[in-house]
Amino acid sequence: MTVPSGLAEGPIYLDYNATTPIDPAVVEAMLPYLTGGFGNPSSDHHYGVAPGAALEHARGQVAALVGARDGRIVFTGSGSEADNLALRGVVLAAETDRPHVITQTIEHPAVLQACQALRRHHGVEVTYLPVDADGVVDPAALAAAFTDRTVLVSIMAANNETGALQPIAELARVTHEHGAVFHCDAAQAVGKIPLDVTDLDVDLLTVVGHKMYAPKGIAALYVRPGLTLEPLVYGGGQEHGLRAGTENVAFAVALGTAAKLASADLAAGGHRRVQDLRDRLHDQLTKRLPGRVLLNGPAAARLPNTLNISIRGVTGHSLLAAMPGIAASTGSACHAGNHQPSPVLTAMGLDTDRSMSALRLSLGRWSTPADVDRATDLITTATGSRD
């Protein structure tokens, strides 16, 4: 497996949840459509035939990864755009006075900000469900939140900070019992765990390229058959009439190729390999820093690559600053040098000290045991191991 050139000489990369390196096989697949295969995929002549076929082949590859045997795969320019198309598309197409939308407090900002805009500009009522100490939504709380005007529920599959997995199938079932549409932002989950839109029974699902070894600037929205959405971009009718504009064939091919690679990796148990590395890192840190390492989020029901821990006696941002040999992240926000606790961890009920001590370590395709062992050494040294 070829290592991307960007990883060869740099720090140990433990920030795969922020963005993934582009797989060299993805780069190879997309390059022909930046050169010889430049034609407009809507053109009927020689130069459009191959790009048009490549676009539809990529659509099928994405559909196969998420189990979309029916329905539409709509390519978008980002996960945020896909989320906005889902939310605005459902609400603006609804034949309901003052529609009601339900989401959760720790959803991605693309969903939260879209809900706020719908409230401001269209009078939409929004309910924000709380989460428990693991960052998980209670299906009973969802059931209690419905009104006769509820048209949409939007809950992410997995949290980007803790990796916590939501009970999507159960939440979708409750939603459909109340006659509403269910959208799932699966940006962090697709490609990391097996996921099937038919089994989950979701109506809309967001897929993001740069979370699964494709470039930034490409994503997709799965749309259930028969579901009507108001377009986000009007124009020439591309992408099933939901996203006008000449398609970015090269990036669609990149996403399709990344989806094919992810399908093969999941079938080969690649997610279990990454989970073993994640657990190795957690176990080693716990042994080297006895009594100081606290796991944030669920121990079991989380993404196989994600480890969010608080280390007593040190803040996350100061720890990262002391470890230039590791590229990772915290959940805290920094405004003019003033660090604030992660909204996600705060919503889970963690106190300020623990939230400010949080460190998110997310592994991926090119993580190795040597990386994990070296990261353990660097973290324990920077925290002042008492061994």
Score class of each variant (00 low, 15 high):
residue 24 P to W: 02
residue 333 A to R: 15
residue 277 L to H: 07
residue 166 Q to N: 07
residue 369 P to G: 08
residue 36 G to W: 13
residue 369 P to E: 12
residue 163 G to Y: 02
residue 273 R to A: 04
residue 226 G to K: 06
residue 237 G to R: 11
residue 250 A to V: 04
residue 354 R to T: 14
residue 65 L to R: 01
residue 382 A to C: 11
residue 172 A to P: 03
residue 197 V to A: 01
residue 263 S to C: 07
residue 76 T to A: 13
residue 188 Q to E: 15
residue 76 T to F: 06
residue 63 A to D: 00
residue 6 G to I: 13
residue 304 P to E: 14
residue 375 A to C: 05
residue 334 C to S: 14
residue 204 L to K: 03
residue 106 I to M: 09
residue 43 S to K: 13
residue 237 G to S: 08
residue 99 P to I: 00
residue 57 H to E: 13
residue 233 V to R: 15
residue 28 E to G: 04
residue 338 N to Y: 14
residue 53 A to E: 14
residue 17 N to T: 14
residue 173 R to Q: 10
residue 155 I to R: 08
residue 23 D to Y: 02
residue 356 M to H: 04
residue 214 A to L: 06
residue 318 S to C: 07
residue 74 V to K: 02
residue 207 V to L: 06
residue 297 G to W: 01
residue 123 G to P: 12
residue 322 A to V: 03
residue 214 A to S: 12
residue 336 A to M: 14
residue 3 V to P: 07
residue 257 T to N: 05
residue 27 V to A: 10
residue 320 L to K: 05
residue 340 Q to M: 11
residue 352 T to V: 10
residue 92 L to R: 12
residue 305 N to Q: 14
residue 75 F to V: 00
residue 246 T to F: 13
residue 246 T to Q: 13
residue 251 F to N: 08
residue 222 Y to Q: 02
residue 101 V to S: 04
residue 122 H to G: 09
residue 373 D to N: 15
residue 35 T to L: 13
residue 78 S to E: 04
residue 58 A to H: 03
residue 338 N to I: 15
residue 262 A to Q: 02
residue 279 D to K: 13
residue 321 A to E: 08
residue 277 L to N: 07
residue 99 P to D: 04
residue 243 R to S: 05
residue 69 R to P: 05
residue 62 V to M: 00
residue 124 V to N: 05
residue 302 R to L: 09
residue 226 G to C: 04
residue 175 T to R: 09
residue 217 G to F: 00
residue 133 A to D: 15
residue 267 A to E: 11
residue 97 D to K: 12
residue 51 P to E: 06
residue 201 D to L: 09
residue 256 G to A: 07
residue 208 V to N: 05
residue 369 P to S: 10
residue 340 Q to I: 08
residue 306 T to R: 10
residue 326 I to R: 13
residue 103 T to F: 08
residue 347 A to T: 03
residue 349 G to H: 10
residue 296 N to M: 13
residue 374 R to F: 06
residue 204 L to S: 02
residue 18 A to N: 09
residue 23 D to I: 00
residue 84 N to L: 11
residue 207 V to I: 13
residue 76 T to D: 11
residue 79 G to D: 01
residue 309 I to T: 04
residue 13 Y to L: 03
residue 14 L to Q: 08
residue 245 G to M: 08
residue 301 A to Q: 15
residue 1 M to D: 11
residue 161 E to T: 12
residue 342 S to E: 01
residue 301 A to P: 09
residue 320 L to I: 08
residue 151 V to C: 10
residue 325 G to E: 11
residue 25 A to D: 10
residue 86 A to L: 03
residue 97 D to M: 11
residue 116 Q to C: 08
residue 4 P to E: 04
residue 270 G to R: 05
residue 165 L to G: 01
residue 338 N to D: 15
residue 208 V to Q: 07
residue 60 G to N: 06
residue 279 D to E: 15
residue 330 T to M: 12
residue 326 I to M: 14
residue 8 A to E: 15
residue 387 D to Q: 13
residue 10 G to Q: 13
residue 233 V to W: 14
residue 311 I to C: 00
residue 238 Q to K: 12
residue 315 T to G: 04
residue 4 P to A: 04
residue 89 G to W: 03
residue 194 P to A: 05
residue 135 G to F: 08
residue 107 E to R: 09
residue 20 T to L: 01
residue 335 H to E: 12
residue 48 G to Y: 09
residue 260 K to L: 12
